[in-house]
Nucleic acid binder design. Structure first.
Lengths: 373, 373
DNA sequence: CGACACATTGGAAACGTATCCATTCGGATC
DNA sequence: GATCCGAATGGATACGTTTCCAATGTGTCG
């Protein structure tokens, strides 16, 4: 690189009208718009050669390689992904759609995707749908225009059209955490919601509970359908008839969750345990119980489906069914990138785990009185 | 659109070797690789006209516009952002760098950025640095290659070079939440850490506390430097001499945080209150206190700088200094997109808020005994 | 010594778009 | 009726890259 500039660089446009004194000493120029042509000119070779050197393909002599690399470094050249992608028809981008980036479950999931994407040399476009199908469709369209190589989504129900369009356009799609009603065939990675609920119910029954409530989301968003079904079948298998008054569904807002939980406790003072689907409903259950001065677990046992980092900070520490959010993200990313072909096989199901802490106890002999007023 | 296909579309490549029977009825074709040229051919106009219609610029007759739009819809045409960006030299992409996407503060921040980006018609590339300068530099480089229009970052200390390189390359940068040591001049949006800590300390002193500990991160990551300074100066202004033994710094891991908190409680049983910087250290303080059977707030008052959704689920509900994570993201995004020019002005500082809950109480007359063993 | 294989290299053509510029055309003004 | 103006339109070019293909040079084998 000694005497390099004088030898090869053609200052066709880096001299920006008159030497501004002093910056000649600055070897690293890095002006905007340094293209492969500039590097080629600087190294005294053709653009094809520069491309070969930088992408490591083809054969180049050692001397040439060095010259090119030196020139690229000196000019601060950064290849434009735009040009490359346009030519190769691959961007290395993966689109990620979540309902809410601030939700702890989603956040952990995102982190998993990012981690795997990094090892696979991909970049991630993130957007949040707010569980609004229209917004989701908008995001899908935007991703399609950006020509992402694939899309990972925790989808909203009901817009099968957009997904099919994406797939037909050649963009592979992987669902995570939940699958829209009509699209069971598509590649997906899910948590074993059913198994988790089953374990939780069996655990509670083992503690002697018989009047167990189930508080979960409405519709089939977020696996609520699976959880509800598993809740019912587990009771039935053990000879209990599900008490419909103990099966409550709440809309996804925080207020609705609290209202549902409080309403449940007040209308059914005889329940001794509750299984809540999702951290939001879990929070609501804990707050409502506290508000009604029900002691956990003395008066009511609580299991939440969805681990959250603060479950052990709660008082008492919450017994939860932990869903592998991070692993979900990792597997979804792997599935997207490694899937040998569009195989319509069964979804990948990741195990959940019952984390026993302190929010469940045996049924107490003493009957607690009904609601005070 | 009636009779449209027969009239104008030239089936030069959509006929894919022999009619596969039946799909001719499917009006929406949407094959991969539908370009502006295909739309032009289908509408019987030139590509320039199609471009004008779709981008809304220039003048086009109503009839032509209709024909073009119909053709685009029929072919399921999605303009390629690659081509457009290459030509216009703008991608509409903004790069977002956070230390950890799963962290609740970061997650809320991300949500803020996404929200504003959506209204500004931008897409967001997200990546996590893990607070590793090398990884961060890698991400910056990747974003630069993707030709993002701007970068928003919660940066790691010590890689001024990468940031300067980015700025010199024409990519504007906005820091959020914290600013690297040597780069105070750059555009940034910060939380008023100092004001928050001051308020917290004054609140505690108003409750009669005098031996107040400060537990925070090491180095200057995440505003710890500002918090520490504010803690000191607030004490001094009120005539107290900061007790160095009560100023503890912990490395960012969860284990280190717990160790630091436990060590503090054990070595200084005389402290009556503690201010923790960041939710992680707040958690650690609560857990350590609980482990050592210190009652909150009877034995020790706790203020955490950093609101977290579960602060009110904790027992007792935590009094915190809430940092406006979401607003931080929104403002950072606005600053990035609306900044009229590279102005080196003062950073934007967003107010924090003391949320009084139940983890602080007056100093009790009874002196609690030293640690039991 | 001729022919052939092989390594090295550069020119040129795409990829899909926006936009400059020239061209055509209808109508209005003088 | 000639001229001019503005609207409408299409061809061509450039954005930055990869890659095919041809051309050159170098070495080996018959």
């Amino acid at each position: 690189m000694q005497g390099f500039v004088g030898d090869h660089v053609k200052w066709k446009r880096f001299h920006l009208g008159g030497c501004v004194g002093g910056w000649a000493a600055e070897q690293e120029v890095a002006l905007a718009g340094v293209t492969i042509k500039d590097v080629a000119a600087a190294a005294g070779v053709g653009v094809a050669t520069v491309s070969r050197v930088l992408s490591g393909t083809g054969s180049v002599s050692a001397a040439t390689r060095d010259r090119v690399q030196a020139a690229a470094a000196a000019l601060g050249y950064r290849p434009s992904a735009l040009g490359r992608s346009l030519k190769t028809q691959r961007t290395g981008g993966i689109g990620l759609i979540v309902p809410d980036a601030a939700d702890p479950f989603c956040a952990e999931f995102i982190a998993g995707v990012l981690e795997t994407a990094r090892t696979e040399n991909c970049h991630v476009l993130l957007d949040a749908s707010g569980d609004d199908p229209a917004v989701e469709a908008e995001i899908v369209d935007r991703f399609a225009q950006q020509r992402v190589d694939g899309v990972i989504a925790m989808p909203v129900l009901g817009d099968a059209g957009a997904w099919n369009g994406l797939a037909r356009l050649g963009v592979s799609v992987v669902f995570a955490g939940r699958v829209p009603e009509g699209l069971s065939g598509m590649p997906a990675v899910l948590a074993d919601e059913a198994g988790g609920v089953r374990t939780a119910v069996e655990y509670l029954m083992g503690l002697g509970h018989r009047r167990i409530a189930h508080l979960d989301g409405d519709a089939s968003l977020g696996g609520a359908r699976e959880r509800r079904a598993a809740f019912r079948s587990t009771l039935e298998e053990r000879g209990l008839v599900p008490d419909e008054g103990l099966l409550v569904r709440a809309r996804p807002s925080a207020d609705a969750a609290y209202a549902a939980a409080a309403g449940l406790f007040q209308s059914r003072p005889d329940l001794t345990a509750i299984v809540a689907g999702g951290h939001r409903l879990g929070e609501a259950a804990v707050l409502a119980a506290r508000e009604l001065t029900l002691r956990i677990p003395a008066d009511v046992s609580v299991v939440v489906v969805d681990d959250v980092p603060w479950a052990e900070l709660c008082d008492p520490p919450l017994t939860v069914v932990s869903r592998p959010a991070r692993a979900l993200g990792e597997r979804a990313c792997e599935l997207l990138l490694r899937a040998p072909a569009r195989r319509p096989g069964r979804p990948v199901v990741l195990p959940t785990e019952l984390m026993v802490r302190a929010s469940c106890g045996p049924v107490t002999a003493s009957f607690r009185p009904g609601r005070s007023r």
